[in-house]
């Protein structure tokens, strides 16, 4: 089994968008998500020596991130009882409020059907991605969703360009047939 190396110098460039997107879809608060991502990177640095190289760097960082998100939920949950007392409703700006209703996404800013369809598509893509072998998923995601340059991916994963295109081809074929079943 190939072992993965750890190189924190590239973390922010390579993974910050990915981790942020992952977090925001679960936390729904940009500032909070930023803090969590930052915490995750710092925690990763701290436990760098525990990195065994069994999983890719990204998977490893995600596992730290997941724990941070759970911690966040725990914290907000223990504050719940106080929320009604601590009314900072119009304190700093018009849009900021502590009421739960204010925090959930506005369901009327878009055509409801569109939103549902988009959500379903996102889920379908995610579930198809998770069925790919890890390497294919990583390359496909970096190339297609995060839009990294071919060269960057090649350097980072230590593969040649033709190697990359073969992996992309396999991933695309699998994604297309998976989405065909679940979406088209």
């Amino acid at each position: 089994m190939p072992t993965h190396k750890i190189n924190p110098n590239q973390w922010i460039n390579l993974y910050s968008d990915y981790l942020f997107n992952y977090t925001i879809s679960r936390v729904n608060d940009r500032d909070m998500a930023k803090d969590i991502v930052s915490d995750t990177f710092l925690a990763g640095l701290k436990s760098m020596k525990n990195f065994k190289g069994e999983a890719s760097e990204r998977t490893w960082l995600i596992s730290i991130l997941k724990r941070k998100i759970i911690d966040h939920y725990r914290k907000t949950n223990s504050k719940k009882g106080k929320a009604e007392v601590r009314m900072s409703y119009y304190s700093d700006s018009e849009n900021e409020g502590d009421w739960l209703e204010e925090r959930v996404a506005d369901p009327f800013n878009k055509n409801a059907e569109d939103t549902i369809e988009n959500k379903e598509l996102a889920l379908a893509i995610q579930s198809c991605l998770s069925k790919l072998p890890e390497k294919q998923a990583t390359v496909f995601e970096m190339k297609t969703i995060l839009e990294y340059e071919t060269e960057t991916i090649c350097n980072e994963l230590n593969i040649t360009a033709s190697n990359l295109w073969v992996i992309i081809h396999r991933a695309r074929t699998a994604m297309a047939s998976c989405l065909e079943k679940n979406w088209f």
Partner: peptide, 19 residues
């Protein structure tokens, strides 16, 4: 393949959030 690209792009623009 073109269909896949369109789907992914539509989804990315809609849902992918960057820092």
């Amino acid at each position: 393949n073109v269909k896949l690209t369109k789907l992914i792009n539509a989804n990315r623009d809609e849902n992918f959030q960057r820092l």
